[in-house]
């Protein structure tokens, strides 16, 4: 994927769509097994969309939810991570990004959740060629691009005269991945 530079207030639909289409493995830092928490919703949603998701939460290490084992840290994940989804806010962000920058190979994307933004950390990651998304939710963005967002009256920001795609399961909308 080509490298993008932004002010991070607005992302082009093709940038977001490209990230969601190209990522295969996603680590969610701050994932929860509590089924009313947003970090559980996103974990479940991304698994259902066919991503290989690795929940990261030191207090849950060794346990599992939705058939996925929790890891204590990014470094413990046994495969190359395409995208790190940061579900922790405030002071924790810088440390998580630093950890991600120690991975080999480097992740292709660092994604900070809705309400999470750290421009300094973003610049560090971008300097290493990593694409960054901040203050967005991958579930919401996937929903906008797949059309599901429209099901709940959401403004997807997108227009198309093409038929929407159904996931191979026939049950959910997909980006066709």
């Amino acid at each position: 994927m080509t490298k993008h530079r932004f002010d991070h207030n607005r992302y082009s639909p093709s940038y977001i769509r490209g990230i969601l289409r190209d990522a295969k493995t996603i680590a969610i830092v701050g994932a929860s097994a509590n089924d009313v928490r947003p970090s559980f919703f996103v974990l479940k949603y991304l698994i259902e969309k066919g991503y290989e998701v690795y929940p990261i939460n030191p207090s849950m290490a060794g346990k599992s939810a939705l058939g996925r084992e929790f890891y204590a840290s990014l470094a413990d994940v046994p495969v190359a991570i395409d995208m790190v989804d940061v579900f922790r806010g405030g002071d924790a962000v810088q440390g998580i990004v630093d950890e991600a920058l120690q991975l080999s190979p480097l992740p292709k994307v660092i994604w900070m959740q809705l309400g999470v933004r750290n421009d300094e950390a973003a610049q560090k990651a971008e300097a290493k060629g990593i694409n960054v998304v901040m203050n967005r939710c991958p579930k919401m963005e996937y929903g906008k691009h797949s059309g599901e967002w429209q099901w709940i009256g959401g403004n997807t920001g997108l227009i198309s005269s093409k038929k929407q795609k159904l996931h191979s399961s026939g049950r959910v909308q997909s980006l066709g991945i």
């Binding site: 082009s12 639909p13 059309g147 429209q150 403004n155 997807t156 920001g157 997108l158 227009i159 198309s160 005269s161 093409k162 038929k163 929407q164 795609k165 159904l166 909308q173």
Partner: peptide
């Protein structure tokens, strides 16, 4: 992006993709 489309285009197309 829809933000680039005009009001009249959105009045017709926004939210109204062909039925899946």
């Amino acid at each position: 992006s829809e933000e680039d489309y005009g009001f009249d285009t959105r009045a017709i197309h926004a939210g109204a993709q062909p039925d899946p």
